[in-house]
């Protein structure tokens, strides 16, 4: 075993630096919040996505497990993220995803793109998309699929990486 390969920047960076005043969508990297709403502790997928997106130039904040939709939306708004990625594998995705969309609407933050992943049946995927979730990734989705979907959803260059 080789301890030198320890992850240098562990995923759970809850205390992200404050946003600099000059930050605007045009001159900063795309920022994504990965959230785990509800009681589900399966975080292998969420953490993988965090690393994958960081490796591809995104700025990523991870909430850790067992956060409420209110906590997630508050953080997303405060950190001025471009997108929220929600991960739920427990089957509770419908009320949790819907609540996040509602809260974004009340906070007038619907410019934030919402995508998600988890064990989500096809009919729920359709329903969630009709309610405003931009994309849902289910088991078997490849890194390429996820990256190209996000490049399409968040088109501004993240060349500052």
């Amino acid at each position: 075993m080789d301890h030198s390969t320890l992850i240098k920047t562990p995923v759970l960076v809850d205390a992200s630096p404050p946003i600099v005043a000059a930050a605007s969508p045009a001159n900063r990297r795309r920022r994504i919040l990965i959230g785990k709403p509800g009681l589900d502790g399966h975080d292998r997928g969420a953490k993988y996505i965090v690393h994958l997106l960081r490796d591809h130039g995104y700025e990523v904040i991870y909430t850790g497990i067992r956060r409420t939709p209110d906590e997630i939306v508050a953080k997303a708004v405060r950190q001025q993220v471009d997108a929220i990625g929600l991960s739920v594998l427990s089957g509770a995705h419908m009320p949790l995803f819907t609540r996040v969309l509602e809260l974004l609407a009340t906070q007038r933050a619907t410019q934030i793109v919402v995508f998600g992943g988890g064990i989500i049946p096809a009919e729920d995927v359709e329903l969630l998309k009709s309610q405003g979730v931009a994309e849902i990734f289910t088991p078997g989705a490849s890194a390429d699929e996820i990256l190209s979907a996000l490049a399409r959803l968040l088109p501004v260059t993240h060349a500052g990486a």
Binding site: G38, L39, A92
Partner: peptide
């Protein structure tokens, strides 16, 4: 299910959507 595992009754707000799922 997760509410039982974490110690919330099935009618608690934290249990919404999770009752009987896993």
């Amino acid at each position: 299910d997760l509410p039982t595992q974490i110690g919330y009754d099935c009618d608690a707000p934290q249990a919404a959507g999770e009752v009987g799922r896993v």
